Simulated assay, not measured.
Amino acid sequence: MPTNRAEFAEVVSAVRDHTALLLGTTIGYSDDDWAAPTGLAGWTRSHVAAHLAEGANGMVRVIHGIDSGTPTRMYESQAAKHHAIEVGALTSGLALQIRLDTSASELQREFAALEGDTRPVALRAGYRIPASQMPLARLGEVVLHHMDLGSQFSTADLTPEIAVALLAFHVDRIGRRDDFPPLRLVADEGYEGSVGRSGMPTQMNGPAGDLVAWLARGTESPRIYRSTESDA
């Protein structure tokens, strides 16, 4: 039975493996394929790739910042982030593929030193996690954006342990935000967690991977169902 937290080495390996899967998808893209829209409003596949490359570079900056004792954010500002992604999306498909590969490889090399690192890092304003969870944050980005590209990949391709770890991570990230309705997520693998504002929660049941996609992207799945009082 998976626990809420996969082993650190397992997560780091999953980042490498799922990055390779994503690169295997994008290597076959033509220029028209790169220009195709995604499920993210206003973003083409080129935007997704530019975002992933910028995200990897930003995480490297954060890691170097905590190592040097000079805390650094992933981006100077939201405007700087937006500009970098828009400019990156204008480059050729080959250039995007190379950037995706090289930025991911550099970040992967940094991850090993983060095992057991409890120093807090800010990946975005108001969102802090222990440095040791950065590989899990990156894994979530790679997995969800691989789905955004419209490929055949889905969260059903995740191992149970990794799916549960990602679900627990997203539950922690969302927390008790007032803009989320009260929800209780019950995974088939044994994990349970709650998000959203206070109130009587709606209970969602299903495989952890499907719940991740539903929670993060609103992706419907025939394997997810709502519990009602009559089910109790």
Rank of each mutant, 00 (worst) to 15 (best):
residue 103 S to Y: 00
residue 28 G to D: 13
residue 197 R to S: 15
residue 138 R to Q: 13
residue 10 E to I: 05
residue 50 A to W: 01
residue 188 D to A: 15
residue 176 R to T: 14
residue 33 D to N: 11
residue 107 L to Q: 02
residue 155 T to A: 13
residue 200 M to S: 14
residue 155 T to W: 02
residue 106 E to L: 07
residue 153 F to Q: 09
residue 140 G to I: 06
residue 208 A to Y: 08
residue 151 S to N: 07
residue 99 R to C: 04
residue 55 G to A: 02
residue 206 G to E: 00
residue 30 S to N: 04
residue 124 R to C: 06
residue 17 D to N: 12
residue 134 M to P: 04
residue 17 D to I: 09
residue 37 P to E: 08
residue 60 V to H: 08
residue 43 W to A: 09
residue 28 G to S: 09
residue 232 A to Q: 13
residue 183 L to A: 06
residue 66 I to N: 06
residue 36 A to V: 06
residue 18 H to W: 04
residue 94 L to H: 14
residue 206 G to W: 02
residue 37 P to H: 10
residue 67 D to M: 06
residue 215 L to R: 03
residue 12 V to I: 09
residue 138 R to M: 11
residue 170 H to V: 03
residue 135 P to D: 09
residue 106 E to M: 02
residue 26 T to V: 15
residue 219 T to Y: 03
residue 226 R to M: 14
residue 191 Y to I: 10
residue 24 G to T: 08
residue 7 E to S: 08
residue 157 D to I: 00
residue 123 L to A: 04
residue 192 E to C: 13
residue 93 G to A: 06
residue 213 A to N: 02
residue 178 D to H: 08
residue 221 S to L: 11
residue 2 P to R: 08
residue 72 T to D: 07
residue 224 I to M: 10
residue 120 P to H: 04
residue 167 L to D: 05
residue 228 T to C: 09
residue 75 Y to N: 12
residue 214 W to E: 01
residue 126 G to L: 06
residue 107 L to A: 00
residue 221 S to P: 06
residue 132 S to H: 11
residue 45 R to N: 02
residue 111 F to A: 01
residue 43 W to L: 03
residue 22 L to C: 10
residue 139 L to K: 10
residue 229 E to Q: 13
residue 130 P to A: 05
residue 145 H to P: 11
residue 16 R to Y: 03
residue 59 M to Y: 02
residue 186 V to Y: 03
residue 142 V to A: 09
residue 40 L to H: 07
residue 213 A to E: 00
residue 217 R to L: 15
residue 59 M to G: 01
residue 35 A to L: 05
residue 158 L to H: 06
residue 122 A to H: 02
residue 7 E to Q: 12
residue 121 V to A: 04
residue 6 A to M: 06
residue 93 G to F: 14
residue 85 I to S: 12
residue 195 V to K: 11
residue 14 A to L: 05
residue 112 A to K: 04
residue 208 A to P: 08
residue 100 L to E: 01
residue 228 T to N: 12
residue 56 A to T: 02
residue 230 S to K: 14
residue 4 N to G: 15
residue 229 E to C: 07
residue 218 G to N: 02
residue 72 T to M: 12
residue 66 I to E: 06
residue 120 P to R: 07
residue 69 G to H: 09
residue 68 S to D: 13
residue 35 A to C: 00
residue 29 Y to K: 02
residue 11 V to I: 15
residue 220 E to D: 09
residue 217 R to G: 00
residue 141 E to W: 11
residue 2 P to I: 08
residue 146 H to A: 08
residue 230 S to Q: 14
residue 153 F to A: 09
residue 181 P to I: 11
residue 146 H to E: 13
residue 56 A to Q: 01
residue 6 A to R: 07
residue 232 A to D: 13
residue 39 G to S: 13
residue 106 E to G: 01
residue 220 E to C: 00
residue 227 S to C: 09
residue 57 N to T: 03
residue 196 G to S: 12
residue 24 G to Y: 07
residue 179 D to G: 04
residue 133 Q to F: 07
residue 101 D to V: 03
residue 42 G to V: 11
residue 174 I to C: 03
residue 52 L to R: 01
residue 211 L to T: 06
residue 127 Y to L: 14
residue 160 P to R: 00
residue 136 L to T: 15
residue 48 V to F: 00
residue 165 A to Q: 00
residue 150 G to Q: 10
residue 82 H to L: 12
residue 128 R to I: 03
residue 124 R to H: 01
residue 110 E to M: 12
residue 60 V to Q: 06
residue 47 H to N: 10
residue 142 V to F: 08
residue 231 D to A: 15
residue 213 A to R: 03
residue 182 P to H: 06
